[in-house]
Design a protein around this nucleic acid. Structure first.
Lengths: 124, 124
DNA sequence: GTCGCAAGTTAGTCACTTCTAACCTGGTGA
DNA sequence: TCACCAGGTTAGAAGTGACTAACTTGCGAC
């Protein structure tokens, strides 16, 4: 199973919520992403069955190693791309939205080059 | 009807093919995009019915003003993003592929800022 | 003339990602 | 204790964007 863009977003959101509120349940993801409960329920089922997350009896969600790897990759892209766009003069909100879409479609190589360019611009 | 990402790609391809080979038919788009004939046939029907292209009796395709506007916008993004990524050290092939995905999801504002940054880097 | 091929279309299907409607379940307050 | 509510699930549907199989059509070679 190839990981899909939507799955990347869910995993990233789980990571962000874990950092922000600690224990994460499906309903927290519902509130964060503004999707319906069934959408999240279905998505979590897919992520569970494909080994990206674990859910305990109470519904608390943790990322597996496999899930964490993806979540961290996407989240790093999110942060770097957002900061980079802001540094070019883009409004924070727009920068975040664009980062959220670009993070899923950019190649590792292009991302690394943008990251490098951004870091260098910071050191000047 | 909100224009979809796939429609943007078809319109851009029509513009590129027009510049490269002159008269464009569905089969030329099939060969360029590596989609099946029915996929292109169906897509052209949608574009036709929504006023983005015209087809004459022989199947030759032209962009309407509405279609041309989109095609040119996407194509400009494609060129600028590709050149920009190349200028950061990304291989041409990868740069083109990334540009082709980013061009559909980036906001006008972020694109303009990247374009500006790229132009400025060229003048140094 | 007719055979065959190139171009195009129609019909049916599938995966992905979301939705609404309706239901289940377990804990808590009165 | 029991009724309700928060959290979660199942079932069915919809939109997007692709596919294969099978058909039509028109033109050119022989």
């Amino acid at each position: 199973m190839k990981i899909q863009e939507s799955a990347e977003n869910y995993l990233e959101t789980i990571l962000v919520l874990r950092q922000r509120i600690g224990n994460v349940r499906s309903i927290d993801i519902v509130n964060e992403m503004n999707f319906s409960k069934p959408s999240i329920s279905y998505a979590m089922k897919q992520l569970r069955e494909n080994g990206y997350i674990l859910m305990d009896e109470s519904g608390y969600i943790t990322l597996t190693d496999k899930g964490m790897e993806i979540a961290e990759r996407i989240y790093e892209r999110h942060k770097v791309l957002t900061d980079y766009l802001i540094s070019l003069g883009v409004d924070e909100d727009v920068a975040r939205e664009d980062a959220c879409r670009i993070e899923h479609v950019i190649s590792p190589k292009s991302f690394e080059m943008i990251k490098k360019a951004y870091k260098e611009s910071q050191n000047r």
